[in-house]
Simulated scan of single mutants.
Amino acid sequence: MRAITNKIPSKILLKRIFPAFSLSSHSLSTSIETKSQKLDRIANELLSLNPVELHDYSILFGMRMGLKNSALASLSAGASPSGSAPPTAEAEPKEKTLFDVKLEKFDAGAKIKIIKEVRSFTDLGLKEAKDMVEKAPGFLKKGVTKEEGEAIVEKLKAIGATVVLE
């Protein structure tokens, strides 16, 4: 075999072994450089993902690789590769940080005061605030901190509204 390869020029040998690669040696080296640049770009993009995106990517990658759903479930649940069980949700309950202020009902006599108060903590106009109050039960403000939500609830309860913090 060695005698045959010495007699055949390397370009012809490459063409016969790899017919799809009828490239010159220069273009072959540039395609290798392009592949390493592509891998560097992919690695940089993966490193720039936030934890939620990384989690979603790992599930998508596993599905594309043909992993079974049970293997994906154990990976997404946070099981270690050694097979130990993930910590239970009851062991570490997550504390809620953002709350929604919900108007359940109100006294008809206090409707105007409630509309004024709703306008004070939202950026709504008079008509929008009135419509929001009249559509009770409904959310007045979403995604507020606990302290801000409790302040709003106290103000609205003082003027005759039934409000909850969810």
Rank of each mutant, 00 (worst) to 15 (best):
M1T: 00
I8C: 05
K11Y: 05
I12D: 13
L13I: 03
L14E: 06
L14T: 10
K15L: 04
I17F: 07
F21P: 00
S24R: 01
E33Y: 08
L39D: 15
R41F: 13
E45I: 06
L46N: 15
L47A: 15
L47P: 11
L47G: 15
V52M: 11
E53Y: 11
H55D: 15
H55W: 14
D56S: 09
M63Y: 08
R64W: 12
L67G: 06
N69H: 08
S70C: 03
S70T: 08
A71H: 07
A73F: 05
S74D: 10
L75N: 10
S76Q: 11
S76K: 12
A77Y: 03
G78D: 09
A79V: 08
S80T: 10
S80C: 12
S80G: 14
A85M: 07
P87D: 10
E90V: 08
E92Y: 13
E95W: 00
T97P: 08
L98N: 05
F99H: 03
F99I: 01
D100T: 12
V101F: 00
L103C: 09
E104I: 13
K105I: 02
K111H: 12
K113E: 13
I115Q: 10
I115T: 11
I115M: 05
E117K: 02
E117L: 04
S120G: 10
K135Y: 04
F139G: 00
V144C: 00
V144A: 01
K146N: 01
E150M: 02
A151R: 02
L156W: 03
L156M: 04
A161G: 07
A161W: 04
T162V: 09
T162M: 05
